[in-house]
Amino acid sequence: MPKPHQGPAESDPAIRVRALEAILTEKGLIDPKALDALVDTYESKVGPRNGAKVVARAWVDPAYKQRLLSDATAAIKEFGFSGLQGEDMVVVENTPDVHNLVVCTLCSCYPWPTLGLPPVWYKSAPYRARAVSDPRGVLKEFGTELPETVEVRTWDTTAELRYLVLPERPPGTDDMTEDQLAELVTRDSMIGVTKAKAP
């Protein structure tokens, strides 16, 4: 359909969002500057580097790890990470015997304070369909092959708990500092589709 205005054609949702924002602003119901602040928060302040700090601390500090596994919300808040979509957190630990994988089959629930907003693939129909019924197939697509002796434990986050995977600390990292270790902790390893990076 030809667009009468100049410049690149706006997609339909782009125009619908502009219309809604304009109407609500004119009615005094929203402040566009608050929208700017929210966008900036999730584009530049909140993201998987937060979760990586939590994981690295758990790798070097056994007492912290224990707090993290027994009361994740409070332990994560020690870093100042809390709030929207992380109100009630659960951390699940990967071991040589158990590999955890997190999905939300019904929508796309995700722990924002520690991982930021979810990537498109996490929200996509194929991931949501198959993470529960074919987790090993999904893991393979991410290059993660696990022996049959390992239990793959898939968490379908159907309620208001939000999950973060504590990946295994890679071998050969004994001499690394907490900050260096955090660099090995990827977003995908905290969802559970991969392991932490090798040094």
């Binding site: 706006e10 502009r18 608050a34 929210l38 999730y42 693939w121 194929p126």
Partner: peptide, 28 residues
Amino acid sequence: LGPVVPEQDEPVFHEKWEGRAFALFAST
């Protein structure tokens, strides 16, 4: 539904309107 297709170096929002839509959640 096909394979899972991850995107390399994915931005938080792919287009400006996605950020506005996201922010409308908390605001509304």
